[in-house]
Design a protein around this nucleic acid. Structure first.
Lengths: 218, 218
DNA sequence: ACCTGAACACCGTTCAAGT
DNA sequence: ACCTGAACACCGTTCAAGT
């Protein structure tokens, strides 16, 4: 007879492990994703993890690629502007669902399969739409810069200490000596209905307009 | 007579400490910036650090703000497009000199004085150039998205394992099944003279063109 | 084949003590 | 006022051992 405190065998797998890691990062934050906490959540001892992955980095690689796997793959031979808009919104949404992903991307050493598939799809759309190789490089770099950077700003805004009211927050910063920020806050940011995220569609349209110029000129 | 192994007193200061932290992050990487390593480099015991800062987060806040302090402050009443181009290039350069800064920005809870001064200067330029409050918000969000996101991509590209030749690298990824990436690599990225960073000026011009549209329409 | 216990070399940080 | 020693509660990971 087996001890009741012993976990059943063969229940751990790479997939279960990666799914649990992603859930833990989403619910408790990336700093709570430790091998020990992950094991404990799976009802297993820390060292059991290492039977399914070589090290923690492999887990981080996997959850970053899982985020790419959630994004829309644009189709060639469909209107390129709408396809790229949809894929860019989809990346934006995925990075908002998993705000820890951006930080991890900086230190990944190899792109995963979903990342590569996403890359391939975007390249195919641009090349099929008639972008030259050079214009494709510039277009892709600029569009991805926009979506990554926009999400980064959203993460930064979310991490700013929001204890107390917005007025308290602004009072805490030294807005005396910064009249434009004070004006901008009072007359725009603190007005009802303002949302940083509303700039996303404006910026996206602006960048897509620029891509069309690139496509025409090359 | 004092023991030779004892560090002289009063040599530690907040400034020396922050400068040493920035140097350490630049030279050895952000993961090498530990309280213990920092203390050792300053010829002091770890706990001496805590006499000048409350905790490690305060050091990270300080070195992030030091990066902002290196960036160009745009002037109002000068041609706004050239001023913002110069400031954007300057942010790009600073983030390339200190590639660890982007990752830290995501978790900072309060903007430092140099960060606020930068914010103020950009707002003043946009408002003085005739951007409405709404257009200013969209313009600033889009321009910063571009530069942060572009730098993030550069950090990501730098962290990709570059052991061996570029051909080995591409062979390591599964480019079979990804014909567009294979084509793009062979015919463009691997050609002599290609550099990812060349897309920066193109994207910047594209975004600034878009800002001019925003300024006119609002 | 899969899981565990104990240990190692690290962290940031508290607390009490020295000069 | 400024610095230190020892200790605590954490990490990821190695190694040898259990079933």
């Amino acid at each position: 007879m087996s001890s009741p405190s012993r976990a059943p065998r063969h229940t751990l797998s790479r997939e279960r492990l990666v799914a649990a890691a992603l859930d833990l990062a989403d619910s408790e934050g990336i700093s709570a994703l430790t091998i020990r906490a992950l094991a404990s959540g799976l009802g297993v001892k820390p060292m059991a993890i290492y039977h399914h992955v070589a090290n923690k980095d492999e887990i981080l690689d996997a959850i970053v690629d899982a985020v790419y796997a959630e994004t829309y793959l644009p189709r060639p031979y469909a209107p390129w502007r709408e396809e790229l808009a949809r894929r860019t919104r989809s990346v934006h949404d995925a990075l908002n669902r998993h705000p820890w992903a951006l930080g991890l991307m900086e230190t990944r050493k190899a792109p995963g399969p979903a990342n590569l598939a996403s890359h391939e799809a975007v390249l195919e759309v641009l090349l099929t739409a008639g972008f030259s190789l050079g214009a494709t490089a510039h277009a892709y770099a600029t569009l991805d810069a926009f979506v990554y950077g926009f999400c980064l700003q959203e993460v930064m805004l979310d991490s700013i200490d929001l204890a107390g009211s917005a007025d308290d927050l602004l009072a805490g910063m030294n807005l005396t000596g910064h009249p434009r920020m004070a004006q901008f806050a009072a007359e725009h940011v603190l007005q009802p209905g303002y949302a940083f995220g509303d700039s996303f569609e404006v910026g996206l349209g602006l960048v897509l307009d620029g891509l069309e110029q690139l496509r025409r000129s090359a």
